[in-house]
């Protein structure tokens, strides 16, 4: 498979005046097309910084980052914007949907900034993406009319709509309950099965086990990289979850 992300000795130093914070220290990563990678680490481990660099929101202080064969360090801010538009789809912990804006218009957004000329009909594209995350019947709902899980699905649809190389999810389950989290992971797993490359940042081991591979970060270093042996299936867990719910229900009735 083709390599999408390649990082060579990537470091990031934040200069806070008196002190310099080393967020990343010589990271080497390679992610191929079709992978589902979870980046794990406690807060302060540098995973958000890594995420920002992968997502071309930030650039490394030293080292090289190749995205789809292009060295990001050489690009202007306009070119970075175009890469974010074409090759990357973001899903954030806090949803980051535009308020008082329908799901459809939220999902349309990346297509409106499309300069490649591929996005012919934003409305059609957005409807397609919302259907893929199972929200085809909620296109005119505004974020406040949707549950946390549904909002995050809208965010995923927005990430999908430009058919990017990678979907980057930064703690996507951080603000929703467990059941909705597993539901959401089933969406990611389905997308991955259909060929999408997914990078998921999380600090929860449970969540990371739905990915195919885990990269552990601590204090800006990679501690280890491992293949997930007993990968969890979100769909199965959901079925079991229903059983559990019934069990609780039965207990209560007794």
């Amino acid at each position: 498979m083709k390599t999408i992300i390649e990082m060579k000795k990537v470091s990031k130093v934040y200069d806070l005046g008196d002190v310099a914070v080393n967020a990343l220290r010589g990271i080497n990563i390679e992610i191929k097309r079709g992978e589902f990678v979870a980046v794990m680490g406690a807060s302060g481990s540098g995973k958000s910084t890594l995420m920002n660099i992968i997502g071309c929101l930030d650039q490394p202080t030293t080292g090289d980052y190749y995205l789809d064969g292009v060295n990001i360090n050489d690009l202007s801010s306009n070119e970075l914007a175009d890469i974010r538009n074409q090759k990357i789809g973001f899903v954030f912990q806090v949803f980051n949907l535009l308020p008082r804006t329908s799901a459809l218009e939220n999902v349309e957004l990346p297509l409106l900034y499309d300069r490649s000329g591929l996005a012919k009909d934003p409305r059609k594209g957005a409807t397609w993406a919302l259907n893929r995350v199972g929200l085809g019947d909620r296109i005119s709902h505004e974020p406040h009319q949707l549950s946390g899980g549904q909002r995050q699905r809208v965010a995923i649809a927005r990430a999908l709509v430009n058919q990017p190389e990678i979907i980057l999810a930064d703690e996507p389950t951080g603000n929703i309950d467990t059941r909705a989290s597993i539901d959401l992971l089933s969406v990611f797993q389905k997308l991955n099965d259909q060929g999408n490359t997914i990078v998921l940042v999380t600090h929860e081991k449970d969540i990371a086990e739905y990915a195919k591979r885990i990269i552990n970060l601590r204090d800006g270093y990679i501690v280890n990289k491992k293949i997930v042996k007993k990968r969890r299936s979100a769909l199965n867990d959901l079925e079991n979850w229903q059983d559990e719910e019934e069990k609780i229900q039965v207990d209560y009735e007794k």
Binding site: G55, L57, N78, A81, R84, N85, F90, Y113, D114, R158
Partner: peptide, 8 residues
């Protein structure tokens, strides 16, 4: 949000 989805 706009910048992150690719607005220049």
């Amino acid at each position: 949000i706009r910048l992150s989805v690719g607005a220049r």
